[in-house]
Write a protein that binds this DNA or RNA. Structure first.
Lengths: 332, 332
DNA sequence: GATTATTTTGACAACGATGTCCAGTCGTAG
DNA sequence: CTACGACTGGACATCGTTGTCAAAATAATC
């Protein structure tokens, strides 16, 4: 900036004014400065600016997702980028891997970079460790999973209701021998989905104690094995609910191996590409990651802009998409 | 930091030394400082530090991908994060959307944040616009697509060779009426794949002028329509090569609609989830995004560490994965 | 105990920008 | 011709940190 000022023959502050479109600069000097800055290929250093700027805005935020390589997270990431990019805010994206240690390390890295806000998918038992920052007015929005040990905005899917919807759907097709395949129990959404599913069975008069529940299935292979086991037991279930993408894939593989794809009903939580191209098409409880991402970004921006209303949890409804696998009837 | 120094009753520079693990601090003062910084919940401001620090490192890099929501990009993003995170480097990820304007805007945003390096998937005709920065020693690695108008490292898939492999595979199964479905021609990889495919046909003695080539298919629907058109023409192809994921999906839909899934061969460029669960399984030329991402990250780190060797393009080989659709034989 | 070598420490300027505030310049009205 | 406000421009301190360098404290040596 000094160099530009020198080349243009003006003061350094005048350059700052031109670059930041502040008023009070004549057309003549304005173009002199712009010329000079073009010639030197000058670019404003935002970091240096934010050091002095009111509110210390860095125009960057930290986004912590289950994993940037997971399609659900990818959609959220994208929605974020779109909503925040319009305001000139850049996004640091990082992957949680459902590791509490990692969560803390990543949050620390974000804080060290003085982000203007944090959007977090947590896995720690309590997120009280961000209270100091949050009470110093650091905007904070939780996404996909609700916060524990701290009051802050959150945007989540109606996990329990969605799972209950699946249960009701299967029961209404005449199923009474249902099974549940779930993810790690330290993941809040997994617990919620199980709760919603089981409670709905209870409401519909199905004895819940006999319902096979297999949990802590975190990948395709363990889900496949669990499903195989269930399906080859005596009195196998006539319908399966799987609480997550990879678990659904594992269940699909098990069903195919046993030639049961068209005989045992399946509903999965989470939509996925080509679900309609399977045989039969896979019925799912679809989440809306783009809406979740957009809403979370909007809440964050509102907080950044000084919104002081008390924290609130926003629920984005899920949607049952019928494609065939969830509409299979139990054997007569 | 001032406050920490005050509370610990030491000079500000001593605090800096402790925080940065510099030598020459006695155990006694060290723990005094650590105590104070704990009490105040102090966190180093990297931005301020990088202002003065030798080399002005910000410990952040900019990553420009086709779209963070696309699984291929997601894998690359993840590999990047893993390789760079180990060095404490955070990643700004952004989506290109194959829009040249957007590319320039995003690169400018990265530069304004003084990233330590840039990893770019370009769509502009020429990337000469980054020459000033690059010659001022800004590390730069192109990914997936090779640079034009500037000399820099690149990490790409062997697009032409991979497509040729597909052609050879189909021809060896007896096909002679092949068709090509391709993406937008302003995308370098799309052009390379077409070239590789067509040239291989030539080498194998198939008259290339009669091969139907449909290009500029950027989404599933346009690909589906193009495929439908090809397949319902007189003398339809007995084998199709699709140059990209979404195009492959479109072709799959068209084949299914016409009941030809098991009669017309299909090979797609790009692997995808559940490809083996389709009926028939979809034969693909798989890329290795994790390897591409890892290698690009390694090259970037090497450059950051001062590697001065002349720019080089690294090619990550693709892999033909046989799953059934590419092994269908032509009707007798 | 004096002197030197070594370690530990802090004062200060600087990084690149912006906020504050004051000094010119100019046009216009009295 | 003076006075006054509006506009324009620049000097300077400052943000939080680190590099430089010299001072102070401590240890080692004779």
């Amino acid at each position: 900036m000094r160099h530009v000022a020198a080349l243009a023959g003006v003061g350094i502050k005048t350059v700052s004014r031109v670059i930041n479109d502040e008023p009070g600069v004549s057309e003549a000097t304005r173009s002199k400065v712009l010329n000079a800055s073009q010639q030197l290929n000058y670019q404003l250093d935002m970091a240096a600016g934010s050091l002095r700027r009111a509110g210390r805005r860095t125009l960057s935020v930290g986004l912590l997702l289950p994993s940037v390589s997971n399609p659900f997270s990818g959609e959220i990431n994208r929605a974020m980028e779109d909503a925040l990019g319009a305001r000139g805010i850049a996004v640091f994206a990082a992957s949680l891997d459902d590791d509490p240690q990692r969560e803390k390390a990543i949050v620390a890295a974000f804080l060290g970079r003085r982000v203007d806000g944090l959007i977090l998918t947590p896995i720690t038992r309590s997120q009280a460790y961000v209270i100091p920052e949050h009470s110093r007015d650091l905007p904070l929005v939780f996404i996909d999973r609700e916060p524990v040990g701290i009051e802050a905005d959150a945007v989540v899917t109606d996990n329990a209701t969605g799972a209950a919807k699946a249960a009701r759907h299967l029961i209404s097709r005449g199923h009474s021998r249902l099974a549940y395949l779930g993810d790690r129990t330290d993941i809040q959404t997994a617990r919620e989905r199980r709760r919603g599913f089981i409670e709905e069975l209870g409401r519909q008069g199905i004895p819940t104690s006999t319902v096979p529940v297999r949990e802590n299935l975190h990948d395709e292979e363990s889900a496949r094995l669990a499903a195989l086991e269930l399906l080859t037991a005596t009195e196998p279930p006539t319908a399966i609910f799987s609480s997550q993408n990879l678990v659904t894939f594992g269940a699909m593989r098990a069903l195919r191996e046993l030639g049961l794809s068209k005989r045992v009903a399946l509903i999965g939580f989470d939509d996925f590409t080509l679900a309609d191209m399977m045989d039969p098409g896979v019925t799912v409880i679809a989440q809306h990651p783009e809406r979740i991402g957009k809403l979370a970004a909007e809440r964050l921006l509102a907080r950044i802009d000084g919104d002081k209303q008390s924290p609130h949890t926003y629920v984005v409804p899920s949607e049952l998409i019928q494609r065939g696998s969830g509409e299979l009837l139990p054997p007569a």
